[in-house]
């Protein structure tokens, strides 16, 4: 791959005796959507945490446009243009919907403040389907709307790389279609995306490439069709007995 935006080399994370992420190697090219797949507990979220700076690495390197970002604090990595959502939605409970989005716009990769931040937040709320809901308190939101707020906050600093941790999980079939369309539009505007996902429809229609993990290790890499028919991947998902 020529000049990958993001590359992981030997990325490893230990929690005491447990090796949650074991020598992961992969690259993500500019404007590419890469799916990070694997059974529960295989280390997908931990991998995202290592990239975003939420957790320190045990060993290995993460590089952004060739320069290492592993070891940097989360705020620095965010300012360099990497932004993320969380598997369990994290919002700012004392703030209304608009302020939640503004929070992502003020200190990050591209910074805005005052009217500029306000207008930008309104624009993003329109984009994720929350137009007109800026003044709402969070407790009045439905589940998908909380996910939309979080996505809008994540987009507010105009990040180059997006890390989405099961952003589509828990949506009903109609919402899922809306969600998939939304993520497609993010790719079309030139963002590079790593997508942790279990929803097969979403993986097939969104991902250019997939990396599959099992027990912390990369077991397959390739197009969605390739990895989903890979023997080892099937075994990892279904267990040894069924393979």
């Amino acid at each position: 791959m020529v000049n990958p935006v993001l590359s992981l080399r030997g990325v490893t994370k230990r929690f005491g005796g447990l090796v949650a992420v074991n020598a992961m190697d992969f690259d993500v090219a500019e404007r590419e959507v890469v799916g990070l797949l694997g059974p529960n507990g295989s280390g997908k979220s931990t991998t995202l945490n290592l990239v975003s700076g939420a957790l320190p690495l045990t060993s290995g390197t993460v590089s952004l446009w060739g320069s290492p970002i592993s070891g940097l604090p989360a705020q620095t990595i965010n300012r360099k243009g990497v932004s993320r959502t969380f598997q369990l939605v994290r919002l700012l409970p004392s703030m209304n919907v608009r302020e939640n989005v503004i929070a992502g716009a003020v200190f990050g990769h591209r910074r805005r403040w005052g009217h500029d931040a306000h207008d930008h937040a309104e624009h993003l709320l329109d984009k994720v389907g929350l137009g007109g809901k800026g003044d709402m308190p969070l407790r009045q939101l439905t589940y998908i709307d909380t996910k939309r707020v979080e996505l809008a906050r994540t987009l507010a600093s105009d990040p180059k790389v997006l890390l989405l941790d099961e952003w589509l999980a828990g949506l009903n079939p109609t919402e899922l279609q809306i969600g998939i369309t939304l993520i497609k539009s993010l790719r079309d505007e030139g963002r590079t995306i790593i997508l942790v996902e279990h929803v097969m429809d979403a993986i097939r229609s969104l991902c250019d490439r997939c990396v599959v993990m099992a027990a912390g290790t990369k077991i397959a890499e390739g197009t969605p069709t390739q990895v989903l028919s890979d023997k080892e991947v099937i075994r990892a998902y279904l267990g040894d007995d069924d393979a």
Partner: peptide, 24 residues
Amino acid sequence: SRLGFALRVIGDDETVAAHSGINT
């Protein structure tokens, strides 16, 4: 100010604050 806003974000969720570029 931005500092005041940053403190509110930190008070609500420090992880979100750090991931929004705030030097907490």
